[in-house]
Design a protein around this nucleic acid. Structure first.
Lengths: 205, 205
DNA sequence: AGAAAAATCCTGTTTTTAGGGGATAGAGGC
DNA sequence: GCCTCTATCCCCTAAAAACAGGATTTTTCT
């Protein structure tokens, strides 16, 4: 019985590319595609594929959130993350939210098929390049920051000083300073420059 | 006579997608593809296409640099930038370096064909979404920074203080401070946070 | 060669951040 | 009820960055 595949990606060329790659495979049944999270969820109400290839960057919500939602509603569907970047932070988040694997957009046809087969068997799969990076860099911790810290971080990134932020949030400057200190600690940054660079890297801003 | 097309992109799925999209077009002749800048330049020594579809992010050099190089050697070739992002800064740079147009990777088959036809006529072409952004935001100035400023910026981003940077570059702290002031002025940033955010946005770091 | 741009250095002052300590009230989980 | 986490607030000091307004020498380009 053929493996039913669905793809959620807003890049038409990628969708077309994957369709073209999988077309000749008789073991794979192409169920169609969605260009955003909403229509992906809509499709799943009607029918369920075995594997979803899911882009990380979708117009209406992040692939990471969609991943969690889909896994919550349909635990049997295997999700393969799909992205151009070999970015540790995204990959890690995606896997934490229920993805079974991760394939880079420069993967070959063989790699893609291998990934699909692996996740169908319940195994994890990472593109060779990704696993290489994984092994090399041990692990990159992505800070968990609170709601308030996020707000403060955003305002710091906008160029506001502690006193300006304090005024905007109706709190004292010492409070803002406390949040700032927590942020520095959590991002393991010793100053604002590193903080903002890290925050940008992990897509907090 | 069919338009000869070549593509330079390291994402196999995109290459496959575009090939699949253009296959059925009899007015278009597919000449092949390169996965990096070096093999693109190698191919061009043998034969020249009419249009190159070129990704911005290549493994060996930026599409922006490759664009300039190709245009320098083969001024008759039309280059169409190709990227997932509707990012003003990249698009602007690409056009400044000789690209005739810019197509997003979520473009439809029709859009792609339209773009190819437009640049063949010597016209400029921007994906509808891109031109919308272009019109809306007037223009976003991308600072032109000097070699030394770039060095200083990189070290600031790494979290070094002025005196640490001074030590590293064998200059006085006041010199570093001067460069820092120029950077703030050029990026229209009033502090380090904004500077780093802007630098990250424009891919300087 | 001459102009323009870049890189280097200087003296100040004021504002902002970083680092070191805390403390307290409230929410939520166990 | 107890504990942890969050958000709030306070003190103090030192370091760093921002602001102002220069000057000189080297490079680079025309």
């Amino acid at each position: 019985m053929a493996i039913k595949i669905f793809i959620t990606d807003d890049h038409y060329m990628i969708v077309e590319g994957i369709r073209s790659l999988l077309q000749q495979e008789k073991d794979v049944e192409w169920m169609g595609h969605a260009m955003n999270a909403a229509s992906c969820l809509g499709f799943l109400q009607q029918q369920q594929p075995d594997v979803i290839l899911m882009d990380i960057n979708l117009p209406d919500k992040s692939g990471i959130d969609l991943c969690q939602e889909v896994k919550g509603k349909y635990p049997d569907i295997h999700i393969l993350g799909l992205s151009s970047f070999n970015q540790q932070s995204f990959i890690q988040k995606m896997m934490e939210h229920g993805a079974s694997g991760y394939v880079l957009k420069n993967a070959t046809r063989e790699e893609l098929l291998e990934a699909i087969e692996a996740v169908m068997k319940g195994q994890k799969f990472l593109s060779p390049e990704v696993s290489a990076t994984n092994g090399r860099n041990e692990e990159i911790r992505i800070p968990v920051i609170t709601r308030r810290e996020k707000e403060v971080l955003a305002l710091i990134a906008e160029g506001l000083t502690n006193s300006e932020i304090a005024e905007k949030l109706f709190v004292s400057t010492t409070t803002v300073d406390s949040h700032r200190k927590s942020l520095l600690a959590k991002f393991e940054a010793k100053n604002t420059a590193t903080l903002i660079r890290m925050a940008a890297k992990f897509s907090f801003i």
